[in-house]
């Protein structure tokens, strides 16, 4: 049985210490000593979430949780630490304030925009928010050439934000087919949280 002394530590440290022992040393029987009832409850819950059977004891003024791995231990996935998973990914926000790229030939501009939206997929999961303002909102309404592409983006979990003021201005509120209607505060907040903002 592996002994863990987590006295003198406050939440969530006793749970983290227990987690380290259970995961790294693959311990299947542990005895965790803590000095508050709160830590005892938390350690008990953690061990049970990992498929342990637990028993609570008192030891002088301290609290003890004894955990034993059951035969049918089915380890649930613990929440991913911040150092792993998508934290490493950059957050890229793309803001389209127009439905065409560049000036000059309108037809070419539209063609380029359609191509741009389609090629955005190449950014992979780093593409974090796609925001449409001003004329850009016209890409999100029925009849838009990229509607299917945007819907596909949304299905993969990409957050698409469409400016409500702009839709309203063009009288397009009813015709928006994709994305969440948003406001300037959301857009500014997204800009602040993003690692990179690309404005078209």
């Amino acid at each position: 049985m592996k002994e863990i002394d987590a006295r003198g530590l406050s939440c969530p440290a006793p749970v983290l210490q227990t987690k380290a022992v259970v995961e790294q040393e693959k311990a299947d029987a542990v005895r965790v000593v803590v000095d508050t009832a709160a830590s005892q409850q938390n350690v008990k819950r953690f061990l049970e979430s990992q498929g342990f059977e637990t028993a609570l004891e008192k030891q002088g003024g301290d609290y003890v949780v004894v955990g034993k791995c059951t035969a049918a231990r089915q380890k649930k996935e613990t929440p991913k630490p911040q150092s792993e998973g998508n934290i490493e990914l950059k957050k890229i926000m793309v803001m389209c304030a127009t439905d065409r790229i560049g000036f000059g030939d309108e037809e070419l501009g539209l063609k380029l925009m359609v191509n741009f939206i389609r090629t955005l997929k190449e950014m992979g999961p780093e593409l974090w928010r796609l925001v449409f303002v001003n004329n850009g909102v016209k890409l999100t309404i029925d009849g838009s050439e990229v509607l299917a592409d945007l819907e596909e983006f949304e299905e993969t979990g990409l957050c698409i934000l469409v400016c409500g003021t702009c839709l309203d201005h063009f009288n397009l509120l009813e015709r928006k087919q994709v994305g969440e209607t948003t406001n300037m505060l959301d857009i500014v907040t997204a800009m602040q949280l993003a690692d990179k903002v690309i404005s078209i």
Binding site: S10, A38, Q41, F46, P79
Partner: peptide, 15 residues
């Protein structure tokens, strides 16, 4: 709810 199940309740909740 998920995190509380992993024993991540703050001491204040118990108090």
């Amino acid at each position: 709810i998920e995190y509380a199940g992993y024993g991540l309740l703050p001491a204040g909740a118990f108090k």
